[in-house]
Design a binder for these strands. Structure first.
Length: 483
DNA sequence: TGAAATGTTGGGGCG
DNA sequence: ACGCCCCAACATTTC
């Protein structure tokens, strides 16, 4: 009987588990291994929240494995060393893992493959970053043509989703595992329970059934006060469902949709999954975007980087209720509605003129779904510095965004409770309340809730000036170098 | 997956 | 009855 290692990274599931399936097919016994890698846990912008989520998911996965005659081997250390050690201890002839395309992951895997028989199978996206490229082999840098090419590739059949194996033979060996030593907070009222069953359940609740929520996605997805999105991002991030499963589920839903709006809704959600793969592809082909703006003409913006204003943003006390609600939702739950992400990001970059990389880092420290490709893509989009980015002059007005997407102020009242009694007409601009009204509703602006950290109208004109100047300078520099 | 500034139109008040 | 003005409502342009 041959033994193989199933090296688990960001694919913490047993359903549609191509790497595990390959290991089971090629060898009889399988050692499921997760390596806690100090290069990740001690990296800049590492996230304690995400670490807890991960460790809970590992504990849950260990339980699932035990029901199938296996168990999770958890070790700490450099992956290359740990893998060599476990291979020696178990006599494993091969290591199977789902591919991972981040720059660090590719370096790490290349180093492992240099000395060990590593076989990468499948990946966190449906299509490999090299599979969806232009006719001349170069990558797409604009979303829409990428999306069309993505959809023109062969898509999985619903019956191609692999069921979770019922038995996973483990070699007759004693292998040390640190899984029992995890010291986890037991917070029963978690918003994102970290286990595969929860992920599968959420996908089902969102995309299956007679009238699945995905059929209303177009109408509700931007509403901050309603539960219109799938809230699957942490689970996709850690592969507790596969991208293939999500795509198959939404395709099936789309076929079943009888009316146009339902079909369009399913299509819109699929497009969001494709944005995820678009940004993975961008990072794969342009790893430099983690260091600097994709667009060369916007690399020298004179950011203000006011540390006190940045702190006000981080802590949800900018004085703009919709911004503060988003930031507090993030701090409290490790997740933020996507519309809120755009609003708070626009505010940080375009109202406060803080370097988008500061915001990117903060999000990485707090988001359960924090992923370098998607997070970087989103921030560069907002800053107008990225691929297919928002134009520099697109600046969100936090009051109008609030009025549009949280019309009754319910999202604000949930996360900024000090404003609970502010009337709807003032909930998005509480600083306009008269002294009398402030006294009536028990909120003195400047004492109980902050004065706006900056005037939006002034900030908007300031940013337009700065970006315009920056583009002019870039054009002149190009001329200067040429002539 | 914006918002503000500017332009146009047309109804109604008014002398 | 007519012309003038105001301005809301909508459209277009600009950032």
């Amino acid at each position: 009987m041959q033994t193989a290692i199933w090296w688990i990274r960001r694919d913490l599931r047993l359903t549609d588990q191509t790497a595990l399936t390959a290991a089971l097919q090629e060898a009889g016994d399988v050692v499921p291994l997760f390596v806690i890698d100090p290069a990740l846990t001690e990296a800049k912008n590492a996230s304690p929240k995400r670490q807890v989520f991960l460790q809970q998911a590992l504990q849950s996965l260990d339980g699932e494995l035990r029901q199938r005659g296996s168990r999770l081997i958890l070790r700490r250390g450099s992956p290359a060393e740990v893998l060599a050690q476990v291979a020696a201890e178990s006599g494993a002839a091969a290591i199977y893992a789902e591919a991972d395309y981040s720059p660090y992951a590719r370096r790490r895997d290349a180093a492992v493959a240099h000395s060990l028989p590593l076989k990468l199978v499948g990946g966190p996206s449906l299509h490999h970053p090299e599979a969806v490229v232009k006719a001349d082999g170069t990558p797409y840098t604009v979303y829409t043509p990428y999306m069309r090419a993505w959809k023109s590739q062969p898509l999985p059949r619903p019956d191609s989703i692999l069921p979770a194996p019922s038995r996973i033979p483990f070699p007759a060996l004693e292998l040390v595992s640190e899984i029992g030593e995890l010291n986890l907070p037991t917070d029963a009222a978690q918003i994102f329970p970290a286990n595969e069953a929860e992920a599968q359940h959420r996908l089902m609740a969102f995309a299956e059934g007679a009238t699945p929520r995905v059929f209303q996605y177009v109408d509700l997805r931007n509403r901050l006060d309603l539960n219109g999105t799938s809230q699957l991002s942490p689970y996709l991030r850690f592969g507790m469902i596969s991208a293939r499963q999500a795509v198959v589920a939404v395709q099936v839903a789309e076929v079943r949709a009888t009316e146009g709006l339902a079909r369009k809704s399913a299509e819109t959600w699929l497009n969001e999954l494709i944005w995820r793969e678009f940004y993975m592809t961008i990072l794969y082909h342009f790893p430099d975007v983690l260091q600097q703006s994709f667009r060369a003409d916007l690399r020298q913006i004179p950011w203000r980087n006011d540390v006190q204003e940045f702190a006000a943003w981080c802590e949800g006390r900018t004085g703009y209720p919709i911004v503060d609600a988003g930031m507090r939702q993030l701090a409290h739950t490790g997740w933020m509605h996507n519309r809120a992400r755009m609003i708070v990001a626009s505010f940080l970059v375009k109202d406060l003129l803080v370097d988008w990389r500061w915001g990117e880092g903060f999000f990485m420290e707090h988001l359960l779904d924090g992923d370098p490709a998607a997070n970087n893509g989103g921030w560069q989009w907002t800053a107008g510095t990225g691929t297919d980015a928002a134009p520099y002059f697109r600046i969100f007005n936090p009051v109008l965004q609030g009025e549009k997407f949280d019309p009754a102020g319910e999202y604000i009242r949930q996360w900024v409770p000090e404003l609970t009694n502010v009337p709807d007409e003032r909930i998005h601009k509480p600083w306009e309340m008269t002294e009398l009204l402030q006294a009536e509703v028990g909120v003195k602006i400047g004492r109980d809730y902050p004065q706006p950290v900056v005037d939006h109208g002034m900030a908007r004109r300031r940013t337009l000036d700065v970006y315009q100047m920056e583009k002019m300078v870039a054009v002149q520099n190009r001329r200067g170098r040429r002539g």
